[in-house]
Computed example of a mutant assay.
Amino acid sequence: MKHRPRLQDAFAKGLLKPGLNVVEESEKQYANNVVGLKQCLEDFKQDIEWVERLDMTNGPAADIIAIAEGKSVTQERSDIDPDDDFQREMYFYRQAQATVLDALPRLQRLKIATKRPDDYFAEMAKSDQQMQKIREKMLSKKISMEKSEKAKQLRALRKYGKKVQIEVIQQRQKEKKAMMTAVKKYQKGLSDKLDFLEGDKVSSKAKNEGGEGSAARIAPQKKGLNTKRKFKNEKFGFGGKKSGLKWNTKDSHNDVSSFRSKIAHSKKSGFGKGGRKNANKRPGKRNRQKMKNKAR
């Protein structure tokens, strides 16, 4: 006889029902082996002095407010709500306070210093060479930032100068256009004013339109003689009336003693009748082209 699976037996008995079928498992049994746990504790426990361990087990320090209200330690601890963050943190604080009050006298009895000396210097986590590299890197970064800032300022100044130059050029073009319009009106007889010939009028008009700054830029600036001009004046003088040795006079104009008609009217001179002025005249382009074609 063949054994059927348990699921088929359950189906045959009518134990299976429509829907999700879950296999039930027995509850896990937890063993509270106290003797074994104590034995494990004794195996890895080491018998060393308290100075090497510095472990303390303390309750919280006394609460002054609870003592003033006349509450006992049990009542005080029962009033603490573990879900209240402030009360829970204060309990931990008082517990640490009680540990310090108990540990400090014990350390003093063992002649262990609990305060750092005034001349104590802790060892740095990084070496001096590493710190020197960090200083150099920070210095180089600072220098690069300064250079970048200076470059930004130069770019801003360059943009401002270009803007001013554009404004000056536009103003000059505007003045030129206005002057040409005034000249055309005067030529056509539409206006009899000659204000456009006066520079002061133009500068005052520009001052009223663009303000004092633009007028100051447009107005011609009077400058003194430069060094080159001064040197030439000292070397060659300041001009003025010359001696006039090469000037024509009435006597030199009427003196024709040096005139020779043969020389003046000869063929070699090129100015007389039948002279050689046009003897070697170059032929025109078309004639030169015809001459080239004939030579071919």
Rank of each mutant, 00 (worst) to 15 (best):
D200A: 10
P60K: 03
Q46A: 11
Q108H: 15
A178Q: 10
D85C: 02
A178V: 09
K142Q: 15
V100D: 10
D9H: 01
D251L: 07
I80K: 15
K193W: 00
E198V: 04
Q8H: 05
R260D: 14
Q187T: 08
L41T: 01
E42A: 13
K162S: 15
K162C: 01
E52L: 12
G244Y: 08
F11A: 14
E149W: 01
K176G: 08
T181A: 15
N293C: 01
V183A: 06
Q29S: 04
S252Q: 02
L107H: 11
K38I: 04
K228H: 05
A216D: 11
K177E: 13
A178F: 11
R217S: 13
A98G: 00
D251S: 10
K13H: 05
F259D: 04
D200M: 05
P117Y: 07
S266A: 14
R94C: 01
A10N: 13
P82M: 07
I80A: 05
K152Y: 11
P220L: 07
K147G: 02
A98P: 00
G284T: 11
A98E: 13
K188S: 14
G199C: 06
P105C: 02
L41I: 05
S214C: 09
D85E: 14
N208W: 02
F92C: 07
K242L: 13
R94S: 07
A122G: 15
R172G: 02
R106A: 07
G210R: 08
P105W: 02
G199N: 12
A61G: 11
R4H: 08
K246S: 12
M138N: 14
K201T: 11
E24D: 07
L225N: 11
Y93W: 05
R77S: 00
R109N: 09
I112N: 01
E42S: 11
L197T: 12
I80D: 06
L7K: 09
A122Y: 03
D47T: 15
L7D: 08
I143P: 00
K162V: 04
D79C: 05
K126I: 13
K184A: 13
L15T: 02
Q46W: 01
K115E: 15
K185Q: 10
K141T: 08
M56W: 08
